[in-house]
Design a binder for these strands. Structure first.
Lengths: 342, 342
DNA sequence: CTGTTAGCGCCTTCAC
DNA sequence: GTGAAGGCGCTAACAG
């Protein structure tokens, strides 16, 4: 912060009024005469006076800032969510402080601690993979206990009571699988690089349920868990040796693209031999060859709802009553060239 | 911010010491006896005391926060830069407040104004398209005049004196064009959706210079300016009616991908008939079909340097001397399937 | 060694 | 109408 900022005090000296008069005048307090107000306002305008936000925050004991903790900004989905959050927050006069956990539990904890000392009024978070594995949510509960509300999106957990917004992962996956089966696929496989997250698990369940419901016991679920994108090709190639595949539901966009490219490289035709559906409608899907059919994950809306959740909780102090809400957004399938539905 | 936070004052009451003693004890001030220190530290630990950052900021007249203003988070390039900034800033103990200008001048101005009241110590910015067109940089100069230093990356302007970091756009474009010509292309076209930015212009110049140097006057530069991605197909199709093309340099990744898809759709083969090179090495390039040869834009490094620039300026108050630096990062070509170099 | 005092910039009673 | 005083939570110069 600079030291050549105009302050109430300086303005008081310049105008020969007291600090409190200046303050009141600028706040349009009716106690102050119109003349004085005008004088002071002009002066303030002239010197481009802006009240110091830090001082105001200290006084009001709030920051109008929200800490946003996301696992990975390079995933288009999270970038989209962030854009939704930013838009909504800006409109409501809040700043967002962005932290990237890089899927690391430790970084997540550090970010929360770093911001939970008065830097922000609350948090928006999508939980990291590692945190899911560790099942340790003390840092989040700690923030809530300190009076910093939390708003979760997408990767949520039952272990923490707070507002949440998700898409209907189970149903989306069910529908995608169902569509593939009804279009004639006999061997639908589920590929997931996010097996250790709430959404990953929900999507697997939806897939498995659809298989059970529709194929009855004729087809058994086949889930290929990718631990690391580096190992994608090897894992998948290995998998193909022992398994027939004519349909794939991929738990994210990139694995959908990888799947297509790998299958095409291995001599299969998409969608003639194998149909592929991915989750997340990012930039890859529309621009791949063939374009990838995807489940739209409503990223921007997720961000907006998450932002609204935290902001309304911050502004309605009455809302302290512990009635947390979980919003479920419906998704829809965007059909492109990687599938052949009737 | 919550009100159930532990404060120095409360700690003082609880420990029967004065506020200043508590403050000093926690700061490990040698003036305080070890015994007292231990007592107080234990108490602080027990009550999970964290100094209120806002108060500290007010006192020290700084925020340890940096405003980051980017045109578009959905472009992978900017997401990558942001990740570089975030990493570097976090390591040095700074928070980043992210604002998205959406290529709008007005939003850029608003974001700066919103943050230039004591919310941040300085700015990192990549200038929006509209700002370039308007050539109005008063908001940036205003911030600097207030004592808030600015660090620019990628989209920079000579009109503002500050630290900058860019890639060698001219040279990168020159090299890309040169490569295409030397691989046998006679009709290299430059496609740009970012004609109104510093980098866009530099890239065009590099292309034109390469054409002039190598083909002498035999080939004339052909620049296809895309005003809007919506119009891409129409513009390009129109262009193809009147022009032969056997090589394309695209000013960003997406237009490279669009170009390939359009050419392939129109019956051309890539790279047999037409070679394509794009700028920015994002997620699209490696996953397209064929994979797109690109100029690596060093996004993460750009972010890191931009963050370092602003932080070192904030911390070396001596550095006030107006010696601003412009760092130029060298790029390299990542050769993939969309080109056929020998 | 410890405490008092002052002040960062703002707002808000409460006197005058 | 206007101003003096106090306090948000913290640090630091200065007394004791």
């Amino acid at each position: 912060m600079s030291n050549q900022m105009m302050t109430l005090k300086k303005l008081a000296e310049l105008s020969n009024f007291s600090v409190s008069t200046v303050s009141k005048a600028l706040a349009d307090n009716p106690e102050i005469s119109i003349k004085t107000k005008n004088k002071i306002k002009k002066l303030a305008e002239f010197y481009n006076y802006k009240p110091n936000i830090t001082a105001k925050n200290l006084k009001e004991r709030k920051t109008r800032a929200i800490g946003v903790i996301i696992p990975n900004i390079l995933a288009h989905f999270f970038a989209k969510v962030l854009s939704g959050i930013e838009k909504e927050a800006t409109e409501k006069g809040y700043n967002i402080i962005t932290c990237i956990s890089d899927e690391s539990f430790e970084k997540e904890v550090k970010s929360i601690e770093m911001l939970a000392n008065g830097s922000v009024d609350g948090f928006i978070i999508s939980v990291s993979k590692e945190t899911f594995v560790k099942e340790n949510y003390k840092h989040l509960q700690g923030a809530i206990d300190k009076g910093l509300p939390i708003s979760m999106f997408d990767r949520v957990t039952d272990k923490v009571y707070c507002d949440k917004v998700v898409i209907n992962d189970f149903q989306s996956s069910y529908t995608a699988t169902e569509k593939l089966i009804k279009s004639g696929c006999k061997n639908v496989v589920f590929v997931t690089p996010i097996h250790h997250t709430s959404v990953g698990l929900d999507r697997v369940s939806g897939y498995e349920k659809a298989l059970k419901d529709i194929l009855k016991r004729k087809g058994k679920p086949k889930v290929l868990v990718i631990e690391d994108y580096q190992k994608f090709t090897d894992s998948f190639t290995e998998f193909l040796k022992d398994n027939k595949v004519d349909g794939v539901v991929a738990a994210d966009e990139l694995s959908g693209i990888y799947t297509m490219n790998l299958l095409i490289g291995a001599g299969h035709r998409v969608p003639e031999d194998v149909s592929v559906i991915g989750f997340t409608d990012g930039i890859l899907a529309g621009n791949s060859n063939p374009p990838l059919t995807t489940v739209d994950q409503r990223a921007v809306e997720l961000g907006k709802v998450a932002a609204n959740n935290i902001i309304s909780r911050l502004e309605d102090s009455q809302k302290e009553a512990i009635t947390y809400e979980t919003t479920v957004l419906e998704t829809y399938l965007i059909e492109r060239g990687s599938t052949k539905f009737k």
